[in-house]
Amino acid sequence: MNFLAPIGRTFLNFLASTGHLAYFTSRSVSHCFRRPLYFGAILRQMVDIGYYSLPVVGLTALFTGMVLALQSHSGFSRFDAESAIPTVVVLSITRELGPVMAGLMVAGRIGAAIAAELGTMRVTEQIDALTTLSTNPYKYLIVPRLLAGTLTLPLLVLVADIVGVFGGFLVCVYRLKFNAANFISQSWQYLEWRDVSSGLWKAAAFGFIVALMGCYNGFNSKGGAQGVGAATTNAVVSASIMILITNYLLTGILFAGK
């Protein structure tokens, strides 16, 4: 029966780390609703997460929109459905690709940076030092990152939506020779507010996940430079996987019945 032991051990480890993460999450979130809040730190994180991610996210969205237009054209022209291309581009970007692409890019950029920064602070005892200076590390380090992640990603996705659709527009008008006015009117025609808003809800969830996994892995890292490296990798990988799973679940919830 010995071969069952590793399976059991893995399962128990999984339960233990799930519990650990759940405890960390509830503790961090509860601090988000209790004073004092360090608004300066929150603002600085918002600039870091939002503003400095604009180039990466914008570029990703632009090319995604362009490819989408190109691909749907080559597919839809087989059954003369070219007129559906603007709608396809707009709906795919706002509902799915905008939030997911932005979430994954931010996971790579911000999740890694948070994990590396907090991990280094942990192994050089800076987090212990905070405690001895009467400053709660959850309040000073984690709350600003969680709030900034949750609040800024929707803004970032709004920009990504606009840039992505613009990418589709560029390809359709300059390469596929669509009429520009037609593109715009068609893309508006079937667009509903909830296509956009669902993407923004998703973005908020993804922003929370990225910041949370960065903080959790960094805050609990141990063992010097190697530990910080492992924490960084784990933060990016786990955030990306959780984004994809959450995306599926949220799509199910937000579009239930339709």
């Binding site: 602070m121 050089t124 005892e125 800076q126 212990d128 030092a129 905070l130 405690t131 001895t132 009467s134 709660n136």
Partner: peptide
Amino acid sequence: RDVHLNKFGMLFQGAALFD
């Protein structure tokens, strides 16, 4: 705990300055 910690100052072995 905050009140307790407020009484202390500590010099860490590795300084532990906020970089």
